[in-house]
């Protein structure tokens, strides 16, 4: 059993009457990439802030790097790298200055930081922008700089809150590549996301959160195996007819989900089912057979889509 860097039991956070995090349990092992997947408002960011020793829990227990964040905030934060949801870089300073200043907050020597900055500029592919003012950078570059900044202290755990939200597809792929490299060299990652593809790409293990609770936990492939079928058949009959044909489809398949624009049918052999449908002369306007994803797991667990 690998060493656990984070252990949470019955972790709860309330804001007045509202329970943001509702008695959750989880462990994060050293070297693992752990994800919190859920829609906006599921309690992911609050959980991250409790782990990062910046927000105090209401009840339950949590240890981070063998310490209680309520009592040992600075000691814990000394060994975490935090990438918040919104980049909070200093836009008036240059790329290098931002890295440098941040390193000083950890009390690191100027000599150490100077060497580290070179390494991080290369990692973040920002060498050419080293003297550029941060306000002039693109969204993807700012994100990479925020990640580089979080790595300046060589943290034991890198915390990423929605690392690619708001980025274009190309910028996301560059970022995933960078994070994958960190994972390869054994950095423990804790990340939140509401993108299932991101969770599948980056997480060894994840918890699905909704309304402050953990709905399920496991490796992405395990979750798909447990909570969904091998394949999904998506059919569209046009918004008018979807409702009309749904009862017939329901008889043909043990589990279907009616979404506003399409019907999802959960089976192990999608092509075979599609042939049956066509044989009944139902003729969908479009059809698609695909592998199950974490989106289907979420739909199964909560009855709602991840991104609405």
């Amino acid at each position: 059993m690998p060493e656990s860097l984070i252990i949470a039991r019955g972790l709860t956070k309330k804001f007045g009457d509202f329970t943001a995090v509702d008695a959750i349990d989880f462990d994060v092992a050293k070297g693992e990439s752990f994800g919190l997947l859920g829609p906006n408002g599921a309690g992911k960011s609050t959980t991250m802030r409790i782990i990062a020793a910046t927000s105090q829990r209401t009840s339950g227990t949590i240890t981070v790097l063998d310490r209680d964040p309520e009592e040992h905030g600075p000691q814990i934060r000394a060994h975490l790298g935090v990438v918040p949801q919104q980049d909070n870089l200093d836009g008036e300073l240059t790329v290098t200055e931002n890295l440098f200043i941040y390193g000083r907050y950890f009390g690191l020597s100027k000599k150490f930081i100077r060497a580290k900055v070179e390494e991080l500029l290369e990692f973040a592919q920002l060498e050419e922008k080293r003297d550029a003012k941060v306000d002039a950078l693109s969204g993807g570059m700012k994100r990479r700089l925020t990640i580089a900044r979080a790595l300046i202290s060589e943290p034991d755990i890198l915390m990423l809150d929605e690392p690619t939200t708001g980025l274009d597809p190309q910028a996301r792929h560059i970022l995933w590549d960078r994070l994958f490299r960190l994972k390869e060299v054994g950095v423990t990652l804790v990340l939140t996301t509401h993108f299932m593809d991101e969770a599948e790409q980056l997480c060894d293990r994840l918890v699905v959160m909704d309304k402050g609770k953990i709905m399920a936990e496991g490796a992405p492939s395990e979750l798909i195996k447990t909570y969904s079928t091998k394949e999904v058949l998506e059919v569209r009959f046009g918004s008018e007819r979807n409702k009309e044909v749904a009862p017939t489809l329901r008889e043909m398949c043990p589990r279907i989900e009616e979404l506003p624009d399409r019907i999802l049918m959960y089976v192990d052999d999608g092509e075979a089912l599609l042939e049956e449908i066509v044989a009944k002369k139902l003729h969908p306007t479009t059809s698609l057979v695909r592998r199950s994803s974490l989106e289907d797991v979420f739909l199964r667990l909560t009855g709602r889509s991840l991104i609405e």
Binding site: A52, T54, G73, P74, Q75, R77, A78, L80, V82, P84, Q86, N88, L89, D90, G91, Y102, Y105, F106, G107, R149, A150, S153
Partner: peptide
């Protein structure tokens, strides 16, 4: 710019 939140993510109080 929320700079204080960045500072507070380090050992600084």
């Amino acid at each position: 710019r929320k700079l204080f939140f960045a500072m507070n993510a380090t050992p600084i109080t």
